[in-house]
């Protein structure tokens, strides 16, 4: 790809600006010194739980149940992570074992 540095500066500069906008907008709309509306406060209480659920699905968006290996590496690894985490309650252990298992399973 042949782009000049000016073009790349404009391009990456604008993408940075767009990203910054999505991050700061809520804090600009609802500044600290003003009372946060009740509805927004309600959202800020419930959204964290919904988003983590959405992020889990997002990570698994490309799996397929109809094509081999039928999402089995994902299902098995996540099941092991869940059991391990409920049992040992050790974040690093659950993530480490679960990921290692996944890496082995997709190579079988």
């Amino acid at each position: 790809m042949n782009y000049t540095n000016t073009q790349l500066f404009l391009f990456f500069g604008l993408v940075s600006l767009g990203t910054v906008l999505t991050r700061v907008l809520p804090f600009i709309l609802f500044p600290e010194n003003k009372k946060i509306p009740k509805y927004i406060k309600y959202l800020s209480d419930v959204l964290p739980y919904t988003i983590i659920g959405m992020l889990v699905v997002y990570c698994l968006k490309d799996i397929s149940f109809t094509v081999a290996p039928y999402a089995l590496p994902e299902i098995i690894s996540i099941a092991v992570i869940a059991v391990l985490h409920l049992w040992k309650k050790n974040t690093l252990l659950s993530i480490g074992i679960g990921s290692l298992l996944y890496i082995i399973l997709i190579r079988l």
């Binding site: 964290p48 739980y49 983590i52 659920g53 992020l55 889990v56 990570c59 698994l60 994902e74 690894s77 996540i78 992570i81 869940a82 985490h85 409920l86 974040t91 659950s94 993530i95 679960g98 990921s99 996944y102 890496i103 997709i106 190579r107």
Partner: peptide, 19 residues
């Protein structure tokens, strides 16, 4: 390194369970 990106999936799953 194929499959290593699964650590982030695992992280979200663990956080989901903790929550």
């Amino acid at each position: 390194t194929h499959g290593l990106e699964f650590v982030l999936t695992a992280l979200f799953v663990v956080i989901f369970i903790s929550q």
